[in-house]
Design a protein around this nucleic acid. Structure first.
Length: 515
DNA sequence: TACTATCGCTCCT
DNA sequence: GCGATAGTA
């Protein structure tokens, strides 16, 4: 997903960093990145028994990283994606079917005793659901970790927070795996952060100043830079075939004017630019520049950057392409994690809060007994609960894994998280009612990373992870909306087969024109 | 030759 | 996302 190849292209401007560099500062986290990685470690449980303790290991993964940050005196600010409308485009169905297929095949392999193959398939079937995000939010609340649910894209929200001062709720950098943050003009981004806090840092300001490896962005401003990204292809608009990061850079570098680049490209016989490409291009650029975000201070929706007059004219006053405005009370309820942005239902009506005790009790201890050991994460350390004979009902044996030194020390005493110690009578795995799918209005513009489409998918926490706009069915079909460009091309192949006559971009035009 | 497109593999414990 | 490689202007 994001801009294909952008990270590789920007490699000369990306430097190693350790999270401790941001000690004393606030750093934003793209929740999806860590949820996704965490879910990888328990994909089988999420598929086979989503309500089991093991299926919540993704929370352990997430909290380990949160506590790593806190250990280094970094203040984490977790940002979640908003939801999406229930659009049933062909691509969604394809994607959904693929996941279903992976699930079915995975179960088959498991029955046949081929666990390795089954796990491989379960990894392809697993998805991040609103329920998973909500359960994480409960833990974040009890751990006093600041979080916000973006009205639409988490990326835009993070880029916005990066423009604010810390006393306004701003952040000094963003931790993500998504190259879109670069296109949004985010000032400092940490990619590929590992469990020790090592990552790779991109700084926009530095990039626009430095000349390196034959790349020079000195004549670029933020708009040209974002234009280059859009030109290279993004989730909202595929690139003109044959144009990737390098040619996009060359074109912008040569003309230093987007209008000129587009008209040159249109006249270039080597490429075939769709008729509506230029129109779509400007609207996509408008999204990257002015997406709707939530402002914590004023508790209302704002634009990432104030709207320029030319866009106002261009969009003819219709700003819904940036995501429709929401009533402040609703925007706030979503941002604070009280309202499911997919269904617009109150979470509390349907989901039960999981207390940290229950969480650790089930996910750490039960898993420990099943798998040998389980990590519990505190602000200071990673504590491994062992399922050895030493473990008793009331006090578990644990190993403190010092985050800084990497040393393992056997320890049976002081636990910063005394409350996480198991209760004498371990409670059964928490039953969490899933959010019921409800008839959601078609104009619900949310992102569809977490959209349950039927009861079956709910039962296994299944949802798709694509991007979704307030689109008509046909327009949705035209937008590549997967995180991976591979899937994107697969979808396109399928789409071409299932609907040969459809110009894949006509839908996007309809989308823009409809609004 | 330079670049884009595509494939298979890897993320997790 | 990465590296390797196939395809193309």
């Amino acid at each position: 997903m994001g801009i294909p190849n952008l990270l590789r292209f920007m490699k000369p401007f990306i430097e190693p960093v350790h999270i401790k560099k941001y000690a004393g500062q606030r750093v934003g986290i793209d929740a999806y990145s860590w949820l996704h990685k965490g879910a990888y470690s328990c994909s089988m449980e999420l598929c086979m028994s989503p309500r089991s303790a093991g299926a919540r290991r993704y929370i352990s993964y997430f909290m380990h990283h949160v506590n790593l940050l806190r250990h280094h005196k970094v203040v984490p600010v977790v940002v979640f994606d908003g939801g999406s409308m229930p659009c049933k485009s062909a691509t969604d169905e394809d994607r959904h079917k693929k996941r279903e297929l992976s699930l079915v095949l995975g179960k088959e392999k498991l029955e046949q005793g081929n666990t390795a193959a089954a796990i491989d398939l379960f990894r392809k079937a697993v998805q991040i659901t609103p329920s998973m995000a909500y359960q994480l939010i409960q833990i974040l609340k009890t751990e006093n970790v600041e979080f916000v649910v973006a009205p639409y894209e988490a990326d835009a929200q993070l880029a916005y927070l990066a423009t604010l001062d810390a006393d306004q709720g701003g952040i000094a950098a963003v931790i993500t795996e998504d190259s879109d943050l670069i296109a949004y003009g985010c000032t400092a981004i940490i990619f590929k952060m590992d469990r020790f806090g090592n990552g790779e840092e991109f700084r926009m300001e530095k990039t626009l100043k430095t000349v390196k490896d034959g790349l020079c962005f000195q004549d670029f401003d933020q708009n040209l830079f974002t234009g280059m990204c859009v030109l290279a292809g993004c989730d909202f608009l595929p690139s003109v075939p044959g144009i990737g990061t390098k040619r996009a850079y060359s074109l912008i570098s040569k003309h230093k004017n987007i209008d000129l680049v587009l008209s040159t490209l249109k006249l270039d016989k080597r490429y075939s630019m769709p008729d509506d490409y230029i129109d779509s291009f400007w609207k996509t650029l408008a999204v990257f520049n002015h997406a709707r975000v939530y402002d914590v201070k004023s508790k209302s929706l704002k634009h990432l950057k104030p709207l320029e007059e030319r866009y106002l004219n261009y969009l003819a006053g219709n700003l819904d392409i940036l995501g429709p405005a929401l009533a402040p009370s609703m925007a706030r309820a979503i941002a604070e994690g009280r309202l499911n942005p997919v269904t617009m239902e109150t979470f509390d009506e349907f989901s039960r809060t999981i207390s940290p005790v229950e969480f650790i009790d089930t996910s750490a201890l039960n898993v420990a007994s099943q798998y040998g050991s389980q990590e519990i994460l505190t602000q200071e350390s990673t504590i491994t609960i062992c399922s050895s004979e030493e473990s008793r009902d009331d006090i578990a044996a644990f190993v403190v894994d010092d985050i800084t030194s990497g040393e393992q020390k056997c320890n049976k005493g002081v636990l910063a998280l005394g409350k996480f110690l198991p209760q004498k009578h371990s409670s059964p795995a928490v039953e969490c009612k899933e959010v019921k799918p409800k008839n959601t209005p078609d104009n619900n513009p949310f992102k569809k990373r977490k959209l349950p489409t039927d009861q079956e998918s709910l039962d296994r926490n299944g949802v798709s992870t694509g991007l979704c706009w307030p689109l008509t069915q046909e327009s949705v079909a035209s937008i590549p909306n997967e995180r991976s460009s591979k899937r994107q091309s697969q979808q396109e192949a399928i789409r071409n087969i299932t609907n040969k006559n459809k110009d894949e971009r006509s839908g996007l035009l309809k989308f823009f024109m409809r609004l």
